[in-house]
Design a protein around this nucleic acid. Structure first.
Lengths: 217, 217
DNA sequence: ACCTGAACACCGTTCAAGT
DNA sequence: ACCTGAACACCGTTCAAGT
């Protein structure tokens, strides 16, 4: 049947979304260095250059990857005080970024202007406005929280393991006591503050203490 | 004079420090993507493989680059209240990171354990201890400030230009008003909160408000 | 219309060899 | 002891061609 063979040829074997989702899977699993156009194409069972029929280049593919990741954001149920809601929203955003480190990396290169990602921004901004912040203060408070969330994932993503905690403690105690008295003094506590969920919560609460105190002032 | 020719041959044409400083210059000027072993070697007028006589590989070179960058940190004079000193220290650290983006990138990959960089950590930790924070709180407060400083440079490094401000404002107003009411409400203020020195100071002050309020509690 | 191999201009690093 | 060209195993992307 030549007719049906012809129409089959006109139907692309893949969609942009399928390619982007597969790329996201690879990035989630193997990390941000793990994706190349060649490797992704091989993964999908197509020639490398086939991908360039779907995307102008890797940058455009990564935009679509961020869109695919954005679908996976899990907004918390709006329960509790505004402050509890912001805490829950920050935690949800952190968890989302930990699942999809490519989003953090991509945001480090340039601001993300994608409708799907803007929905996540919208949710937090709305909580701040609903809390009674005026738009200028809401914008500033939003950015401070944004930096805290992205900064935590980029620079303090997880707790130290017991092994790492011991090593960090020991490493700090090897420092000269005349030159590093402060680092030596906090050595037993450094691992607790290295990163992870508790340290993240601590930072969120600090910011909210101050945002709350300034509210309506 | 064969004797002196022989001893000249034994003296390396370069030192690790010279190579690291040149690499830092290239990275500061051209950005984090601008450095390759081949390009750096050509810059120094040596064969690519010569660099591997000084460094085991690119990772070790980048460690030395971070050391070279650390020399350039400019600690503020200890003047004013502890709070003013922390603000000045945060500003100095931000300015330093803006001069040397490779440090931010490198810290995003793994914690930096280099004595030269630890001196910068020490300075801030000492301010917090001197302010009367107990070591566990100092460690947590330090990390919150650290995330703010690194996060700001990574994700909100500079102010919007007038042009960018107009474009951001306009872009936010193209969003659907039923789906993005909060982003539309803050549209006129979004550019002010995009990044740069003022937004950075705002975040620093938020954290210090809360750290101060908790001090000694 | 859709797909793709070959080629180009890059990487970091290993190896073997040159002085 | 110090330096390095050739080679290997990768990149992203352009080009020209195949169905």
């Amino acid at each position: 049947m030549p007719g049906s063979a012809t129409s089959n040829r006109r139907t692309p074997a893949l969609t942009r979304e399928q390619v982007a989702h597969r790329a996201l899977e690879v990035l989630d699993r193997e990390g941000v260095e793990g994706l190349s156009m060649r490797r992704l194409a091989a993964d999908l069972g197509v020639g490398t250059m086939t991908l360039y029929g779907y995307f102008r280049g890797k940058a455009e593919l990564l935009d679509a990857v961020v869109d695919a990741a954005s679908e996976d954001f899990d907004p918390p149920a709006p329960r509790g005080t505004w402050r509890e809601q912001v805490v829950a929203y920050a935690d949800a955003t952190r968890a989302w970024l930990l699942r999809h480190p490519v989003v953090v990396q991509r945001r480090g290169e340039a601001a993300i202007q994608r409708p799907a990602a803007s929905r996540i921004t919208e949710g937090l901004m709305r909580l701040l406005l609903d809390a009674g912040l005026e738009p200028p203060e809401a914008a500033r408070a939003f950015r401070a929280l944004f930096i805290h969330v992205f900064g935590s994932v980029a620079f303090a993503p997880r707790e130290a393991t017991a092994q790492e905690a011991r090593e960090l403690h020991a490493a700090l105690l090897t420092l000269a006591d005349d030159e590093f008295p402060a680092l030596r003094a906090v050595a037993p506590h450094a691992a607790d503050a290295l990163g992870g969920a508790e340290q993240f919560r601590f930072g969120t609460e600090l910011l909210l203490d101050a945002i709350d105190a300034r509210r309506g002032r």
